[in-house]
Amino acid sequence: MTTNNHKFPPGFDEAKIKSIIEHYENQTEDEAVAEDETIITGKQQTMMQIPNKLVPVVRELIAKNQA
Rank of each mutant, 00 (worst) to 15 (best):
D30S: 15
I62D: 00
V55H: 04
K18V: 08
T3Q: 06
E29R: 15
V57K: 03
P9N: 06
N65H: 07
R59N: 15
A15T: 09
K16Y: 05
V58I: 13
Q44P: 04
I50Q: 03
I62K: 08
P9C: 07
K53W: 02
M47T: 11
H23G: 00
K16G: 01
G42Q: 10
I50P: 08
A34L: 12
T2C: 09
T41N: 15
A67C: 01
H6S: 08
V57S: 10
Q44W: 04
P10C: 00
G42D: 07
T41V: 01
A67H: 10
R59E: 07
I17L: 12
I39T: 05
H6Y: 13
H6N: 14
I62H: 08
G11A: 03
F12W: 14
I40K: 15
K18M: 06
K18Y: 01
T38F: 13
A67L: 00
T38M: 13
T46P: 09
E25G: 05
K7Y: 00
S19R: 04
L61E: 01
G42T: 10
Q27F: 07
V58L: 05
K43G: 12
P10A: 10
Q27G: 00
Y24T: 00
K43N: 13
I62P: 01
D36R: 15
T2K: 13
F12S: 11
D36L: 15
Q27C: 14
P56R: 03
L54Y: 07
E31I: 07
M48L: 14
P56T: 02
V55P: 04
A15S: 10
E60L: 03
R59D: 03
K64P: 04
T3M: 13
D13Q: 05
V57I: 12
N65Q: 10
E35G: 04
H6C: 12
L61A: 11
E25W: 02
H23E: 15
V57P: 04
I62V: 11
A67V: 05
T38D: 07
G11I: 04
G11W: 02
Q49I: 02
K64M: 04
A63V: 01
E35S: 12
T3Y: 11
S19K: 06
E31M: 03
V57D: 06
E35P: 03
Q66C: 05
G11Q: 02
Y24A: 00
T3S: 09
E22F: 07
I50G: 03
E25H: 05
D36Q: 15
I20P: 00
N26P: 02
S19W: 02
D30W: 08
A32W: 03
